[in-house]
Design a protein around this nucleic acid. Sequence first.
DNA 1: ATGACGGAACTATTCCGA
Length: 262
Amino acid sequence: MAFTLATWNINSVRLRKALVARLLAEEAPDVLCLQECKSPVEKIPLEVFAEAGYRYMVGRGQKGYNGVAILSKLPLEDAGDQDFAQLGHARHVAARLPNGVTVHNFYVPAGGDEPDREKNVKFGQKLDYLTEMRDWFHASKPEKAILVGDLNIAPREDDVWDHKKLLKIVSHTPVEVEHLAQVQDAGDWVDITRKDVPEGLLYSWWSYRAKDWAAADKGRRLDHIWATPDIANAAHSSRILKAVRGWEQPSDHAPVFASFDV
DNA sequence: ATGACGGAACTATTCCGA
């Protein structure tokens, strides 16, 4: 079965339901993983997505913050969730596709401003979250699995607009990059976007604060698609839809796509 | 300074994003 999957930090699924519908209509991924829904699950506008042909959803939500959801044209089986670092947040949900592939949708904590866990509790929570992700995948190696989401880390020098300037900025510090690498190693995860696009600058997020985000182009690649080695070779056609960042009243993230012949 | 915007919440100002 061939299918296309996308991940998008939507920054409020209720405010931007029309943008979600537009992406579904124009790009028609089989599966769309959303982060920062900022909504209880029961208030997600499912009827809008069902009308577009996306009749299946698994999600975890809370009022105002965080929240993850998987919308699908294909039937989904709820495959549970994890509360790493015991934050009590809705930051992970998993679903099984009819072909047996498990999709993990993550929203890793941002980590606050100061990259020092002694001064900033949130930075410590981010590192702890990643450590528990690592331990979980180490305890049971994932198979036939895809991991997507806003991981809030841009690991490579060419995943940020200026590597040296961002070394002390949360999302690109060496300690975060090392923690993310350990998560990746624990599950033998293959970075599908970089498998398909091995060279060159790649961003999926541009700050709202720039006067002209496109002209400044000071982006970071925070949103990722990974897959286990047993299906990584079936992946192709990775792309980041930068134009979506320029839509009316946009999210500050662009959606990331990949297709799989599994 | 990268750079001051944008969303949600017990509507007005505060927390949060990264």
